[in-house]
Design a protein around this nucleic acid. Structure first.
Lengths: 211, 211
DNA sequence: CCGGAAGCGATACGATCGTATCGGAACAAG
DNA sequence: CTTGTTCCGATACGATCGTATCGCTTCCGG
């Protein structure tokens, strides 16, 4: 058997190049030639890694999705405060890619989302990522609400619904920042207000929790 | 002076063709030739209407934006119930393009948003549309809160912030339906729950309102 | 040591893109 | 009718796209 190369690492390197280009020139500005140039490999190398362009994009969107969810998990794990409240706040902050240094990732994500709305195959990994994030949020909200909550006060918020709302709000805010309708600070204010309200509803649903 | 044609109506017809194609094949699948064929005009006719492709897309996004805001206004005007509460609910329903028959418009919108995140010139009309919708929502929330609200009970919600949150939530939900993370019904449930909560907060902020 | 499979980069190919150009049809003015 | 201007649709053009192909190099197995 002749020369062996590490395809996986190369695939990742190419995926990074895809992200860089999607950030700079949008979803339409990602050509295989440019990707190859960015990854500092030949066009043939890209072709050998992926059967066609769609497979390349598929791998790239998976790559981004894992990167984001991984970043959220890291942020949660590194937080000294173990309360679900601050954890959820941090998670939401990581999801809503509002900070300047996350702007690139946000553009990449939007590029893939727009494409996935048409390409069914590209939607798969995207849905997987969304499902993972939703599950994480459901867990955090449930934890914050408290599993032992008896039926006191108002009905506690439905964790799944709250998770979905939070996820959608974060995504919408990200989009609005990208198109320039909101600034990052304005979006953050909206997000934090929503979270504050969520706490309030959780708190009033469990009055005994105060102690 | 020789033959005179109605350029404006033709531009609109072309814009409709752009929307149809953006819906079917995504943002990248909109070529001037396909647009011309869809609009049943020659390629030259399209070129005479718009100096280049970007101008065409610019006109189309303006067209869509006006159509959506117009639809919201119509819905509000036609509602027999003049209360701000139901009005805001209807408006949110029209904004969040969750119903099946609005799916096409949603895809078009997402296509333009994704492109606008890169193309600065395309972002202009998009921001205009968002600003118009936000103003509308601010007005409705303010009306619902009541301008005469004294400082009773909890602080009433900030209308602008609530408008932004509602707009972002609606957009995010639309996106999540398009990528298949949520069904239209699930998204609607989340949206309505958010609205219900908004009413609750408005109500508790003005306890005298009950009468 | 050598035959051949696997990887390499360059190039070719056909399609399609946005845009430019052009000869003729259509029509108001003289 | 002739003339001049405007609109028409077809075609041309160059660029770029995704993909296929093809010698050449590399290097393990026998």
């Amino acid at each position: 058997m002749p020369r062996q190369v590490d395809y996986e690492s190369r695939r990742r390197r190419i995926a990074e190049a895809v992200c860089l280009l999607a950030d700079e020139h949008g979803p339409e500005g990602v050509s295989m030639r440019d990707v190859a140039a960015r990854a500092q490999v030949s066009l043939g190398a890209v072709q050998r890694c992926f059967r066609n362009k769609e497979e390349m994009l598929l791998f790239a969107v998976d790559h981004v999705g894992e990167r984001i969810t991984e970043r959220v998990r890291t942020r949660l794990a590194s937080s000294p405060d173990r309360s679900a409240a601050t954890a959820l706040g941090h998670a939401a902050d990581e999801i809503a890619l509002l900070r300047e240094e996350q702007r690139a990732e946000a553009r990449i994500w939007l590029a893939f989302v727009a494409r996935a709305a048409v390409s069914e195959v590209l939607g798969g990994p995207l849905r997987t990522s969304y499902a993972a994030l939703q599950d994480l949020f459901v867990r955090l909200v449930t934890e914050a609400t408290g599993s032992d909550s008896a039926d006191e006060g108002a009905a506690p918020p439905d964790p799944r619904r709250e998770a979905r709302a939070l996820l959608a709000l974060a995504d919408g805010l990200t989009t609005h920042v990208l198109v320039g309708h909101l600034t990052g600070e304005e979006a953050e204010e909206v997000l934090h207000a929503h979270l504050a309200d969520l706490w309030e509803r959780i708190r009033t649903a469990r009055p005994r929790e105060a102690g």
